[in-house]
Design a protein around this nucleic acid. Structure first.
Lengths: 270, 270
DNA sequence: AAACATAGTTCCATATAATGGAACTTCCAT
DNA sequence: ATGGAAGTTCCATTATATGGAACTATGTTT
């Protein structure tokens, strides 16, 4: 029992016992994006019905899921509450915020702060270009590292073996005509990014969206992140982005420095 | 073992077995708001060290917590990621959004959407008055129901027995001079709110902050929520709030109607 | 430096809680 | 009515969580 299923559609279950299974169920429901019925969940998890049923009851009792009158399961509010408290108490985000605001004032475009987690970038803060498009945050959104400016910048600050280990786990989905299609192509660009100190996203993730990003690396806190300035291609051409590269690098450097100062050295002063 | 500890400082552990304990540990770390050391956590949980230690390892392995070099524990990014997907896939929020924007245009002040969960209101969406003060969301923030406009509005739409059950569980913390100090006082105001159809927050939660709110109740989906328009007391006096009451009630009504239409009837057409 | 104190980690026999196959109930369609 | 699909409950079996205690690492005092 408890084998790791490797079928594509199924979610992997880690070696964290009961908690791992419960999280796999939670993830399955949350990822689906629409209310999931019992049978759907059983299928995506590949665990016996009795087990899945009990896990679901526990998740509902904990407020992590809610069950509607049609018996389908949806994410519960407790997740939002937990995330809010994590976010608002996050010292890295807190330290970076004024620098993001300054970067926004300088450029007038949207500024993002993202942290690398395995092969993904998770956005932890954002300053909107205007309130126009959509009102609210993409905070918590996860995007692949290989096709985003922050992602590539963050990757460029990793030691080569670590970078290669992570690159090997990526699945290169071709979002646009410009998306990297292989680890080799990505690694080649990373070399260049290391020399330049900044990365571009040339409509690699979304058509018509470009950005310039710089890495923030604080190895003594296991933190690999990045800042970026993003804009629509029609308004922000490559020359403009290149011109902003320096202030973006500057902001990244200042954030790095301030985090070092305020968070202190890690264990053993390493 | 597994007794429910009732000491004030300790976190209660539900009857959800291993998951319940793991969530109690997670909650303890997240709630603390600062990195928690092993011993801190053991104390706030009141479970044996061996057990807590293993739970922590599993939570770290799952990405729900991260452990710094000084061995302290902090919330991990996986929480943000899960919450983002829950939030962006939330149909109630999605349906309500245009109505919130319209309300913001009409009033020019900050508009909130919140859902009642036991004795608390959890904010699920927000339209900022300006981008001035702080850039980002209080989405996911939990506030007590008895001292917020949305909270009182939402409570007013509950059947009396349910209301009384919930009111009995509240602890009336006196945030300001105007905060209700007892269930009796709250229940009396709820009576009035039921007659009027809207609720005010007269600086009851935060000094200098007022609001007017209206309830959104969709019993067939177990949804009790509210919308509000909030402003600083110096700019928004009671007369102004009273004048907005009607549009707020209107927005709440339209949201209610549209949710009923698009989410369909619950089970048994109840 | 030695002795002490404190914090974190590992171990393992035991008890408890998770497991999962199967029986059962409910709901819906024909 | 009848058949079938979806959801729920049951319970003997087994795996997993438990937690007291021993252990290791770190840091403080004399």
């Amino acid at each position: 029992m408890n084998e790791i299923k490797t079928t594509d559609a199924e979610i992997e279950i880690a070696g964290t016992g009961t908690l791992g299974k419960a999280m796999a169920v939670l993830e399955a429901v949350v990822t689906a994006g629409s209310p999931q019925r019992f049978t759907d969940i059983v299928q995506s998890i590949g665990q016996p019905r009795g087990t899945v049923h009990r896990l679901l009851s526990h998740l509902v009792e904990e407020g992590l899921l809610v069950q509607g009158r049609d018996l389908s399961y949806e994410p519960g509010l407790r997740l939002l509450k937990l995330a809010y408290r994590s976010w608002s108490g996050n010292r890295f985000r807190d330290i970076a915020e004024p620098h993001l605001l300054r970067l926004h004032e300088l450029t007038g475009e949207t500024v993002h702060l993202g942290v690398l987690r395995e092969t993904e970038i998770i956005y932890v803060d954002k300053v909107e270009s205007r309130q126009t498009v959509r009102m609210s945050s993409q905070i918590g959104k996860a995007s692949p590292a290989y096709c985003t400016g922050i992602g590539k910048a963050a990757l460029s600050s990793l030691p080569q073996p670590e970078l290669e280990r992570i690159a090997a786990r990526m699945r290169f989905h071709p979002f646009t005509a410009h998306t990297h299609r292989s680890a080799a192509a990505l690694l080649a660009e990373i070399d260049e990014i290391r020399r330049e100190g900044h990365a571009f996203d040339r409509e690699e993730h979304e058509a018509e969206i470009c950005c310039v990003a710089a890495p923030i690396a604080i190895p003594e806190h296991d933190l690999v992140a990045g800042v970026s300035v993003t804009g629509p291609a029609y308004r922000v051409n490559m020359a403009q982005l290149a011109a902003w590269a320096e202030v973006v690098r500057g902001a990244a450097g200042k954030i790095e420095e301030e985090v070092r100062m305020r968070l202190g050295p890690g264990r053993n002063g390493r």
